[in-house]
Every structure is written in structure tokens, then in C-alpha cells.
């Protein structure tokens, strides 16, 4: 099965059991079709997304697993952050539907042909998608939730640790000096 991949694609050997190859957005469906028909990588086990905000792109990772569950092949596909639509894999793999739904919610990526892109874990979310790196979690939490006030005897943990370390140090030094 590896020979077919070696022949037709530029395969990157990451580890003995993990391979990767880069595809463009237009090639994706065709490549997936070829690989699933000619090799034993026939299951989509993961669909991941990485936000490269400095390079203005998302990198989607389609993780394929073979029938023996011994080898993994990752198809990497980069898309622009602003033009964020992908073809849906729902017709090829039924499980892709729910994975795409999650990515749509967490990164705001649209999937053409997926009918289920509505609320998933976040109901009534109207901010920018929370896993995008420009999303400021702490600012959002401060704006939407109240924090409970600490106890009256609460101490700043960092400062307290510094103080105690210094105290222990001086306690150690004093007997040796004397």
C-alpha cells in the first residue's frame, strides 16, 4: 500500500507509523477518493485545525487510519483565514459531518454540502468563534461572568511563594554564617 502512495505523491515520513502529505483545497476530494480506493487507508479518524495567525492561514489535518489501525496518514490542507470554506466530506465519510460541525463552531470554517452547521456545544454563541487565536478568552470571561470574591485572608500566590522561599533561604544561611 505504501508503494502506491510513494509513486503518486510526495510522502513525508514523520514517524514509522505516521505519514503526511500536502494537498491543495481543490485536490482534496480527488486525492481522498484515490487513496481510499487504492490503499487500505479507508477510515477518517480525526479532523483537526491549526490556526497559523502569523501566516494568515488555517491548516486542516485529515487523519486517515488503515484497516489494521497500525498506520496513520495525515492530509494537510492550508486555506486562507479570510476565505474560509471547504468541500464537505459528508458523502465520503458519514462521521465527517459531526467533525465538520465542531470545526465550524470553534473556527468558523464553512463546509459546502454539510447540512448540520448549526449550534453544537455552544448555544446562542454570537461572538467570534472561540478557538480562533484572536479571540481573547479572559476578556470574554470578564465581560460575561462574575467572579466570586476571594476570602478576606487570601494571599497573592506568586508573591507568597517568593516570600517563603526567601525566608527559607535566609533561615538556611543564618546558622551557617553563625
Amino acid at each position: 500500500m505504501m508503494s502506491y502512495l510513494e509513486e503518486h505523491y510526495e510522502l513525508i515520513h514523520k514517524t514509522p507509523r505516521l505519514f503526511a502529505l500536502h494537498v491543495t483545497r481543490e485536490q482534496l476530494l480527488d486525492t481522498l477518493h484515490q487513496i481510499t480506493t487504492h490503499t487500505s487507508f479507508d477510515t477518517l479518524s480525526q479532523l483537526t485545525c491549526t490556526d497559523w495567525i502569523e501566516e494568515e492561514r488555517f491548516e486542516l489535518g485529515y487523519m486517515l487510519t488503515n484497516a489494521l489501525r497500525s498506520h496513520n496518514l495525515m492530509l494537510k490542507c492550508s486555506i486562507a483565514r479570510d476565505k474560509v470554506t471547504m468541500p464537505s466530506l459528508a458523502l465520503l465519510f458519514a462521521q465527517a459531518e459531526v467533525m465538520e460541525r465542531e470545526l465550524h463552531e470553534m473556527f468558523g470554517i464553512g463546509f459546502e454540502g454539510n447540512e448540520t452547521l448549526y449550534d453544537f456545544a455552544l448555544e446562542g454563541w454570537c461572538d467570534i468563534p472561540p478557538m480562533r487565536r484572536e479571540f481573547d478568552t479572559l476578556a470574554y470571561v470578564n465581560a460575561h461572568y462574575d467572579f466570586r470574591e476571594g476570602r478576606e485572608d487570601n494571599l497573592d500566590v506568586k508573591e507568597e511563594i517568593k516570600k517563603r522561599k526567601a525566608a527559607a533561604k535566609s533561615a538556611k544561611e543564618t546558622p551557617s554564617g553563625a
Binding site: 455552544l122 472561540p130 479571540f135 478568552t137 470574554y140 470571561v141 461572568y145 462574575d146 467572579f147 466570586r148
Partner: peptide
Amino acid sequence: TINGGMYWDSYNTIKKLDD
């Protein structure tokens, strides 16, 4: 449920149940 615990800065959990 008391103060958010380890999820104190999570965007998707409430911090004070008694609110």
C-alpha cells in the same frame, strides 16, 4: 460550582452557581 475551579477562565462554564 463555587468559583469555577480549574475552569475559572473558560469561556463556556459558569463561575458562580448561586447566581
